[in-house]
Design a binder for these strands. Sequence first.
RNA 1: GGGCGCUUAGCUCAGCGGUAGAGCACUCGCCUUACAAGCGAGGGGUCACUGGUUCGAACCCAGUAGCGCCCA
Length: 862
Amino acid sequence: MTTPELPTQYAPADVETRSYERWVAEGYFTADVGSDREPHTIVLPPPNVTGVLHIGHALDHSLQDALSRRARMRGFETLWLPGMDHAGIATQNVVERELAKEGLSRHDLGREAFVERVWQWKEESGGRILGQMAKLGDSVDWTRERFTMDEGLSRAVQTIFKRLFDDGLIYRAERIINWCPRCLTALSDIEVDHTDDDGELVSIRYGEGDSAIVVATTRAETMLGDTAVAVHPADERYAHLVGTSVEVPLTGRLIPIVADEHVDPAFGTGAVKVTPAHDPNDFEIGRRHGLPSLAVMDERGVITAHGPFEGLDRFEARPAVVAALRAEGRVVAEKRPYVHAVGHCSRCKTVVEPRLSLQWFVNVQPLAKAAGDAVRDGSTRIHPPELAKRYFDWVDDMHDWCISRQLWWGHRIPVWYGPEGEVVCVGAGEEPPAGYTQDSDVLDTWFSSALWPFSTLGWPDRTPELERFYPTTVLVTGYDILFFWVARMMMFGLYAMDGTPPFQTVSLHGMVRDQYGKKMSKSSGNVVDPLDWISRYGADATRFTLLRGAGPGSDVAISDDWAAGSRNFCNKIWNATRFALMNGATVAETLPGPGDLTVADRWILSRLDSVVGAVDAAYDDFEFAKISDQLYHFAWDEVCDWYVELAKIQIASGGEVADRTRRVLGHVFDSLLRLLHPLVPFVSEELWRALTGGPSITVASWPAVLGVADPAAEGEILALRDLVTEVRRFRSDQGLKPGQKVAAKLALDGTALAAHEPAIRVLLRLDTPAESFVATARLAVGSAVIEIDTAGAIDVAAERKRMEKDLAAARKEAAQATAKLGNEQFMSKAPEDVVTKVRGKAAQADADIARLRAQLDALPAG
RNA sequence: GGGCGCUUAGCUCAGCGGUAGAGCACUCGCCUUACAAGCGAGGGGUCACUGGUUCGAACCCAGUAGCGCCCA
């Protein structure tokens, strides 16, 4: 391959689309079910079909792509399976809003036409996010893309429903559920968000005289449905009233006063009104005492109880009821505002109304037990481990899952009812009996997503894909859906797959935040659009910024400045590789043996080796920030700042050394690009192809640890760097221009740097001394001494100031070390290596002090 | 109310027993033929507070304060 002319600035847009299309066309991302490689499987958490790519997806996908690309390079049969979720309630809401613009409701269309309309909408605007994934560079297997409502997955839903039903784990019951009066559907417990809201606490007197009892409530309007007053059985204040009846104000109904353990005698007056039809706790009390349930509101939260409040919305009825009570002199106290927890629909924020209704539930008892045990016994590892506790708290105390939704968009509940009230659950491929009608509800959208790790692989059929790619290697997702999704996949996976959990590891990441750690929100105006970043900084820089901040389970702070820094890093790699190409770097099967390499060569190969090891270790723990940091600093601080500079000198010297340097350069950049590829796929691909002429870095192998650690070479280069930095500091302090050459005498004999004099002279722009050389300054670094003719008076004050500062530091160091060495306790109890270290420090500090004093004395006065 | 976590340089974070690091920001000098999206040098922190353990604490223990998250 001919070396293309690369521009001096990396232009992402030019290469990204081209590379991605080629990758897909070549089939690099298509998993081969028939290969004999070990599988590495990730299923993509399916984004909502309504969605667009947001920065949280970009993080989630960057992590999965890095893992998948590295696995592919390591020789695994790598499957990253993409797809989308039908997102029942969310999508239905979107389409209903569309309809509303035309002045229509779903009821105007009717169920069939409405669902048809949603499908149509899904075809048109759904899946936008999938196109956006290509921009990010996601190496997903597009040939296996799935949708939770497609035919196969629907069959999986019907199959597992039938199995659970037949096992008695799905049942229908009348319960108090969370009801959204706006979405007009039941919600599961976790679809309710609790916030502390301002409300009111009204104390109301029921009854008269000695038999009066005062109850406190935040929802006065529900008193219309009260069927008892409850007190704690041990509460002596009310003992005489238990068993008697009292009149409900405004309604005139007589209700009993009952004693129940559930009542908290310390709350309010210690007496509570009981409304079984509108409160889950009251429902339980009602059940224990055989109380009737009296519904006083309809599905929209409108009062249905006959009387003056009928037809009022619940929030209009509340003050109206209080006013009426007040007029009757029954309000004993009012506390306003009274802050208390209020549940809101997680979809539309409407205040949830507990409502008695007939719904379908999953009995989660045995499923949740298995889901907990799988993590407890190590079959599935949750990472980071701190988050496992949250998982246990949830699965070990899970309430039955309400799975029916009064929506139209979703999987229909496969239960049919006969004319005589018969109930039949119809399995996949079965026909319902003639004359039966199907349940009108659909399933919670999470019911089908809970099947994702195996339904996407062909379950319930025992497909080759299922055999090969289940269980998946790792699930990568945000900790925010640990309960919604992860726990439920664990339950259904274990149940459907005969006890094999769906993941070997669950790796949880955090949320993306702004540069101050604040949550991103439209109202704060701090939302980052990943597509905007991709166009401004490139996909690689966008990914690198996210990866660089991603510690296990922790939130990621990002900002434009940091994205610009990542872009600069990509540009740095671009130009460094350009340098290697321009200087004839070659990539060969083997490297010259250590005997044929310079110290600098051996140093960089040694460092490369340890970086490969460190990166591998960090991948094992999903420490993406560490992976990124290791590579950033190795590439920039070591390869670019030092090895490239030393390589220039070696190449300039010509001959065999130059040839070998080209081979080392080729090897180092080849390896570095491979290491970087999972993080920054586009720039690494472009450069790697130019460097090696290979077809694609996507299918190149992952660098191995070669075992070429060379501590001696590392020590020498470290000494060289110290010396060079110290002299540069002197030059900078003295105001010598970077390009200005000065004459200098080096005394390096007997130090490790003796062989490096030519390099040191080039790096520091030091001329060989002429006959007339007169040193105006003398610098000592370690045991090396450099005398410099600055060709003029030196800035004595600057130098004195500097040396005095160094001297003070050395004296402090010496004092600390001496104090330790004089401490008997320390000497007798501290381990030997620590004592040796401190001795070394003391000796070094003493030498520094002597050296600096001599240098200070040698400075001209003034 | 219950549980978990955090508090280190201006901002975001690493470090998790031998006495402080990174990125960005900041200051100074440089267009030194890979790169000004760059190069070189530099400044900046009583590691929240109070006790304790230890020869030695940012790091372990206890308490206090503030912040955040999850659940009820």
